[in-house]
Design a binder for these strands. Structure first.
Lengths: 201, 201
DNA sequence: GTCTATAACCGGATAGAC
DNA sequence: GTCTATCCGGTTATAGAC
């Protein structure tokens, strides 16, 4: 938390903030410059174009996303362990970086293919996870469920509260930010319980 | 499906398409004009500014969203009936208008307060739904669960498959569009089963 | 109501001094 | 590396003929 970061870092941080908030189209180089406490020209000096700056931010944000995903699946867990650990850690990640879902959704809209390509480039192994689920069902440890549905279920339960934050706070929780905080703190346990009840025989 | 609609309708339809696809910032008046088969000047003649046109589209899309929501809760169902009917109809709505979630999320980002205000203006009664859930838990028909969590769970399970369509298709389903269609067709049953298992004792 | 032409504006990008 | 000033293309918006 040192105040004297170098200019490039200041730019990246400011750009991250603005691009996440406004998306590529809505973001303004002027606002990024203001946010970083410099002027527009310097932005171009460091990153040449708005697009190049955006690409930089995109790759940074994307790295965050798979940080946990990879970790969770890499370490040869049982399905039961995976379930608890994945939900706990993924929600923890989103608490630290709540802007991630919004940013990704924005990009899904703009350039779907880019997101898919990036995902294919990670170490995350889809097959391994599918197999884990199918094995658990075969062993009668969980009720049978198509892996795609289970995975999307889990992801949706983790992600939605962050995407819909303003709606949940404003509409369901009377605009009370403390209530939202509590809600999010309860989430890991609530999701784990919900999924376990839904699955285990 | 008559071909000769009046100009205003043509504009609205074209604007809907473009705004949904590109968002307010990304949309271009020229593209809307082209899509409607008229010229830019006429756009301004009917709606004065881009912003006013967008507001019009926004309110139209928003009406769609609550179409089902209101219906489902209005008609004094038991919790069990509500559950099945809501999930079935909400996913059916999203199949008809899959652009809704993206559009709303875009707006959550841009102007959170607008969304919340709009929601408060609907006939949808939050309290009634909360009470329904709490009553079911009290009667031991379902296991106890905080209503906010249950509602967000259900919504997330319905919405996510549409928001994440490109990712699900491209990454989990090998880019096979037919598989996505099948996946979506299976969804209502999968979600209902999942939620029921998670809830009912 | 609808068009063509153009004004007014905005925002990304560059030139050039320091 | 950092700044001020400026350019230039694209986009919204308006004027005015038909």
């Amino acid at each position: 938390m040192v105040k004297k970061q170098n200019t490039e870092d200041k730019i990246v941080e400011a750009a991250k903030k603005v691009f996440i908030q406004k998306g590529m189209d809505g973001a303004r180089m002027q606002q990024i410059a203001d946010e970083a406490g410099i002027n527009k020209a310097l932005l171009h000096y460091y990153f040449r174009t708005k697009n190049k700056l955006f690409e930089k931010i995109f790759s940074l944000v994307f790295r965050d996303i798979f940080e946990v995903l990879e970790m969770a699946v890499m370490k040869e867990l049982s399905f039961e362990q995976f379930l608890e650990q994945f939900i706990t850690e993924y929600i923890a990640l989103l608490k630290r970086k709540p802007y991630i879902p919004q940013f990704v959704i924005h990009e899904i809209n703009r350039k779907p293919q880019r997101i898919v390509d990036q995902m294919k480039n990670t170490k995350f192994d889809k097959q391994q996870l599918f197999a884990l689920i199918e094995q658990a069902a075969e062993d009668k440890r969980i009720r049978p469920i198509p892996p795609v549905h289970l995975i999307t279920n889990i992801l949706s339960l983790c992600l939605f509260p962050f995407v819909a934050k303003p709606i949940i706070t404003g509409f369901a929780l009377d605009g009370d930010k403390e209530k939202y905080k509590t809600y999010i703190d309860e989430r890991p346990e609530q999701v784990i319980t919900f999924v376990k009840q839904a699955l285990f025989l």
